[in-house]
């Protein structure tokens, strides 16, 4: 009966989770809000366009996106953000500036028109009696895999442990001989790479143009603010807020639906008593 709604809710949550993951990592470790996140999503989408131009498999776009996003992120961290961590509000401005630079560069090269990118999967499958988009289901799977991978990376590997140490107490981490500068650099690259990867992953569902990032950025931003720094909370927030968006759009008013995530996030943050 409610199979479609259920599928819509979980796959929407999965997509939102993928899109917000990179932002969460940067916010969690670096304590900065990366407003260039939307631009990295755009970069990822154009990676898919380039893969199409080169006649490579649509899946290769994911690799191009991850590597390309991380590379641009590296330059951005190195040239722009490195000295700004002590001025957190200014990092919001600087990353917004970065967003302008990346988006305008793409516009200059590709133009504002929509670009064609090949999709790997376009068919639908039958799930519980309804035909449903296979790609959305794959995205749900990828969201889960990415979530687990990032969790393993953060909890089980040396670099993750070091990053955790920096989150918890940066001075102490420095005192233990951890190069926090390097940790930040690697983290930002990872965040940018994941954002870009997310851009490539959502490309089969959306049209590719230089301004596709901003609406996604705003939703991802709200989710991360609600989730704080925890991967589990992010999944929960994506499920609750994303689910609310789908349900409000379906049964209520679509205008309200499109604003659900923003409004809920503002309310939750205002009236949540537990502060982390």
């Amino acid at each position: 009966m409610y199979t479609i709604e259920l599928l819509d809710v979980v796959t929407t949550a999965g997509i939102l989770y993928i899109v917000a993951l990179g932002l969460l990592i940067v916010y969690g470790v670096l304590k900065i809000i990366n407003l260039a996140h939307g631009a990295f999503l755009v970069l990822g989408s154009y990676a898919a366009v380039i893969a199409t131009w080169l006649d490579w498999s649509p899946w290769s776009a994911l690799v191009i996106a991850l590597v390309g996003g991380a590379a641009v992120g590296a330059v951005a961290e190195w040239r722009v953000l490195r000295d700004l961590y002590v001025r957190p509000l200014d990092t919001i401005l600087a990353t917004w500036g970065l967003n302008i630079i990346i988006v305008q560069s793409i516009t200059l090269y590709f133009g504002r028109e929509i670009q064609f990118a090949e999709s790997g999967v376009t068919q639908a499958v039958s799930v519980g009696g309804v035909t449903y988009s296979l790609y959305r289901l794959i995205l749900l799977l990828i969201a889960a895999v990415l979530g687990v991978l990032v969790w393993l990376l953060m909890r089980r590997t040396q670099i993750g442990i070091v990053a955790q140490a920096v989150i918890m107490n940066e001075e102490l981490a420095q005192a233990l001989g951890i190069n926090t500068r390097l940790v930040r650099f690697v983290t930002f690259c990872l965040g940018a790479g994941l954002a870009s990867l997310a851009g490539a992953l959502i490309t089969p569902l959306v049209s590719v143009h230089p301004n596709l990032g901003v609406p996604w950025l705003i939703n991802a931003f709200m989710l991360v603010m609600v989730a704080g720094v925890s991967l589990g909370n992010l999944a929960l927030a994506a499920l609750i807020l994303g689910g609310a968006q789908v349900l409000v759009s379906s049964y209520g008013n679509p205008v309200l639906g499109s604003l659900t995530i923003i409004i809920l996030a503002v309310i939750i943050l205002r009236f949540r008593t537990i502060t982390t």
Binding site: I4, D8, L205, H209, L212, P254, G257
Partner: peptide, 28 residues
């Protein structure tokens, strides 16, 4: 400015019409 059509597509599926007529904003 909303690129996620999930809810509307699910409603179309539920209604199962003979055909669709649509008018979005231009381009993307």
């Amino acid at each position: 400015q909303q690129s996620d059509w999930t809810a509307i597509i699910s409603k179309i599926r539920a209604a199962n019409p003979d055909g669709i007529i649509y008018s979005t904003s231009g381009g993307g």
